[in-house]
Design a binder for these strands. Structure first.
Length: 879
RNA sequence: GGGCGAUUAGCUCAGUGGGAGAGCGCCCGCCUCACACGCGGGAGGUCGUUGGUUCAAGUCCAACAUCGCCCACCA
């Protein structure tokens, strides 16, 4: 009782759910209790999820918040189902991103990484990581994520490094990993090669420059280029073999303007005769097509642009210039020479670095490559065969298409922050052996020399990320965790890393564990800015989820995000979060009402009253819908169903109906109602907990069942489905609705009590069903009801045709006659329509029986309506 | 150039073969003893266009239009 956050006073006073204090208090408690930690337990089914590890440089953005709300709901849900759920958490060392951030920080201090040297620089990155790298993990806690924080991993921690090394060495031994000299995507700003997937193409305005090259022995050939500066590296000109314009110059020699270099003229069918002039200048060192054509024809390769993005010595007078400046100078000089025939505006897509947006320079470089041919086959098959399923399904096809067109993966990076390749070179000039080993060799196994130099390159960050599902559970050691939690159940992520990450995890999981890393891949929606553009910091369109948590609470934010998690991309709408806030508040107040109104009674399901049977039945239907939705990762449907059950049925009807008994004088009735209300509340709170963990925990604590994570999910029980109670309460609802509508239309003052009488059609006494609900109708519709045979003198006339209710009143006779006439006309139309449909032989003959039966039922209803209305109208006319 | 997706109420979105839904906004009435972050009532849509399939189409097919995303060695 000393706890200020529980007890009668607390409940009475907190008419609003205030998230801030509640959330902080519960998260602290959950963490102190290590509630989210899971250990292997042979008695229980494992359920595991690995979080897509956020970069240590990252801060929680809307995409994380959505994905983590999803994973958290799944984790809590399965935990409550009795499974031993483990949500593994951790961060990614994020090679380029982190190195960039630390370099930027150093620059502010007037330092470069070269000033410090590699060792000291890496030390500084670790220091940075220790200070700032945990930010995002703390932010997950603000959201309420039930991650197993006791197992937090880092893609660069010691055990992880062993896994990475082992994988590299193993793949090298199999011949999948090898060093080679190829044209790679080079980012001059980051100073490293990057993989094809890290290149982003952007449409940019540019120019197409037509440059005339003289041909030895007379004549000339004109080529079109968007990058005139690359001509400094030209070694040939190519034309299509079938292009008759150029047949006479193939085999001859052209002269490169400005530099005077001799260029072969070759024929190659990769040249598109339709484009430009049909003649292509060939720069094997700086263009992939040219590189391939160069190989085919044995052309020289001249590197005109260096790794620093400047023109090399091969560029003669342009040496040392930045690419952009060189382009301007080359064009100016060509123009002066008269070799520039024309310049056209031309929009084309420019390859840029995904990390820093700098234009990529394709250049030839010695790099390590991973051949995917052997790995991709099984990884494609498991998706094709449905062993790994994608939701939504279409992403599975996207995955397969990509796999089918895989090229070797450039895995080496010229960075300082990352997993250094486990490769050493013998320095002995006569030996030059390359050694790939898990443990640093002390001498060269080939010549015995002790002078060894370690490869300075590090691995692509995604190389290590690919091992995440098994390396985090202890691999390369055969741990109990690994045996128990791997393979994981589901991977939830954004579609932009299907290739970068998901595909590679599948390949590595199959290769090193012989098992798929996860059964399901759930690809969630992309949340766009409210104007439909991509959310991004640079354009200022980003919305900070933490701000939403501050403003509306974590439960509300999670709820809103889950409503935005549909299969399609959605625009961010704060309204949905506001909706969540309202829902949390509604639930809290419903709980206050139930708990305060039933103090002293124990939760116990009752079947005595129709209302009790009805709400239990409705809850069962809700439960089934929610379970089915979660099973197919339809969180929007799950949350929407819960919202409407709790608000529209539990609060708007059940709680209102239960007041009659709760506030009444019949002690037996009150006990039943109180016990059942408590029981129902508890069931609801349990079902909602995975989606709204804080408010549900706060409620549960009020009656002593917190933490909900240790409680059981509600049980499905078909015996609680009560169609007859649903029918009765459905009729009652229709009656109340009709009375309310009548009151509103007749503009009765709110305080005015209406008198009504139920009359059964055909005198069968069906109105008797409503006898127990006279009190409810009084409360819900401010109407005093009487039953057949006992009409009050001033009674408004009420009919009950076919169990449904219609209202008439002697308020204004003429008005009433007009209203009824209108309704009658409508009913007659409906009857006509229904009869026509049922007279259609094709419909009756071909439509499913149930559909036809439903149509008949509807028609019967309309006929009853029509007859009832006609009768009343006749009565009114008589009177 | 190839592929994928979207187009439903003023706004943001559900709805995938049997008589159009939600939240917000809007209009009317209510501080009714859980909740004004609330309660009750209401208005508002020829479901992008044109064809087709079907007894029946927002829902399936085709074409078109518009918007968005992904992939591609777009000189």
């Amino acid at each position: 009782m000393s706890d200020p956050s529980s007890g009668t006073d607390y409940l009475q006073q907190t008419t609003r759910f205030e998230p801030a204090a509640v959330e902080a208090r519960w998260m602290r408690h959950w963490l102190d209790e290590h509630l989210f930690h899971a250990e292997p337990d042979a008695e229980r089914e494992p359920y595991s999820i690995v979080i897509p590890p956020p970069n240590i440089t990252g801060v929680l953005h809307m995409g994380h918040a959505l994905n983590d709300s999803i994973q958290d709901a799944l984790t809590r849900y399965h935990r409550m189902l009795g499974e031993n759920a483990c949500w593994l958490v951790g961060t990614d060392h994020a090679g380029i991103a982190t190195q960039n951030v630390v370099e930027k920080m150093l620059r502010k201090q007037g330092l470069t990484k070269e000033d410090l040297g590699r060792e000291e620089f890496v030390k500084r990155v670790w220091e940075w990581r220790d200070e700032y790298g945990g930010t995002i993990i703390q932010q997950l806690k603000r959201l309420g994520c039930a991650c197993d924080y006791d197992r937090e991993r880092f893609t660069f921690d010691e055990g992880y490094a062993r896994a990475v090394t082992k994988v590299f060495v193993a793949l090298h031994e199999k011949g999948y990993i090898a060093k080679g000299s190829y044209l790679v995507n080079w980012c001059p700003r980051c100073g490293t090669a990057i993989s094809d997937l890290e290149v982003a193409y952007r449409e940019m305005p540019g120019t197409l420059n037509y440059v005339r090259y003289e041909v030895q022995g007379g004549g000339s050939v004109t080529v079109a280029t968007t990058r005139p500066e690359t001509m400094l590296g030209d070694t040939a000109i190519a034309v299509h073999p079938g292009d008759e314009r150029y047949t006479d110059i193939v085999g001859r020699t052209a002269i490169l303007p400005l530099l005077g270099r001799e260029l072969k003229i070759v024929a190659d069918d990769r040249v598109d005769p339709e484009f430009g002039t049909g003649a292509l200048k060939i720069t094997p060192a700086h263009d992939l097509t040219d590189f391939d054509i160069g190989r085919t024809h044995g052309l020289d390769s001249v590197q005109a642009i260096g790794q620093d993005g400047r023109i090399t010595a091969a560029g003669g007078p342009y040496a040392g210039l930045e690419v952009e400046e060189a382009a301007e100078r080359v064009v100016a000089d060509l123009r002066a020479l008269g070799a520039l025939e024309k310049v056209e505006d031309y929009a084309h897509s420019v390859a840029t670095c995904d990390r820093c947006s700098t234009p990529i320079e394709p250049l030839i470089s010695e790099q390590w490559f991973m051949d995917m041919d052997e790995l991709k086959k099984p990884a494609t098959d498991v998706v094709r065969d449905g062993k790994v399923t994608f939701t939504p399904e279409r992403w599975g096809r996207v995955y397969i298409d990509w796999m089918d067109n895989l090229r070797p993966w450039c895995i080496s990076r010229q960075l300082w922050w990352g997993h250094q390749l486990p490769v050493w070179y013998c320095e002995d000039a006569a030996c030059r052996e390359t050694i790939v080993a898990e443990v640093a060799p002390t001498e060269c196994p080939a010549c015995g020399g002790a002078a060894l130099r370690r490869e300075t390159d590090v691995l692509d960050t995604w190389f290590s990320s690919a091992l995440w599902p098994f390396a985090t559970f202890g691999w390369p050691d055969e741990t109990a965790d690994l045996a128990y939690f791997y393979p994981t159940n589901v991977l939830s992520t954004a579609r932009d890393i299907i290739f970068l990450w998901v595909a590679r995890m599948v390949m590595m999981g199959l290769e090193f564990r012989g098992e798929i890393p996860f059964d399901d891949v759930y690809i969630h929606s992309v949340i766009q800015a409210s104007d439909g553009r991509r959310m991004s910091k640079s354009t200022g369109t980003g919305i900070d989820p933490l701000e939403m948590i501050d403003k509306h609470g974590a439960d509300a934010t999670r709820f809103g995000l889950l409503l935005m998690s549909s299969a399609q991309d959605v625009r961010f709408s704060e309204e949905k979060i506001v909706m969540g806030r309202g829902f949390a508040n509604k639930l809290w107040n419903a709980a206050r009402f139930v708990l305060l109104g039933s103090e002293g009674y124990a939760a116990e399901r009752s079947e005595a009253d129709q209302v009790d049977r009805w709400i239990a039945s409705r809850f069962q239907r809700c439960l089934v819908t929610v379970e089915e939705a979660v099973a197919v990762y339809d969180f929007t449907a799950a949350v929407d169903t819960l919202y409407h059950f709790v608000w529209d049925e539990f609060c708007d009807w059940y709680l209102e109906l239960v007041k009659v008994r709760l506030y009444g004088d019949d002690e037996a009735q009150k006990a039943q109602a109180a016990g059942h209300a408590r029981w129902m509340l508890d069931q609801i709170v349990r079902l909602l907990h995975p989606f709204l963990p804080f408010v549900t925990e706060e409620i549960a604590a009020q009656y002593g069942v917190a933490p909900l994570l240790r409680q059981q999910h509600p049980q499905r029980d078909a015996t609680q489905i009560a169609p007859e109670a649903e029918a009765t309460i459905g009729d009652l609802q229709a009656a109340v609705d009709a009375l309310r509508r009548f009151r509103a239309e007749a503009e009765l003052p709110p305080g005015k009590v209406l008198n009504a009488v139920f009359v059964s059609e055909g005198g069968a006494g069906a109105a008797g069903r409503y006898v127990p609900y006279a009190g409810a109708i009084r409360g819900l519709a401010k109407t005093e009801v009487a039953f057949e045979g006992d009409p009050p003198a001033d009674a408004t006339v009420v009919l009950v045709p076919g169990g449904r209710l219609d209202v008439a009143a002697a308020v204004d006779k003429a008005e009433e006659i007009a209203r009824l006439a209108q309704q009658l006309a409508k009913a007659e139309d409906e009857v006509e329509r229904g009869q026509a449909k049922l007279a259609n032989e094709k419909f009756v003959g071909r439509a499913p029986e149930a559909v036809v039966a439903k149509e008949r039922e509807k028609l019967a209803g309309h006929i009853a309506d029509r007859d009832g209305l006609a009768g009343r109208l006749a009565q009114l006319h008589e009177a």
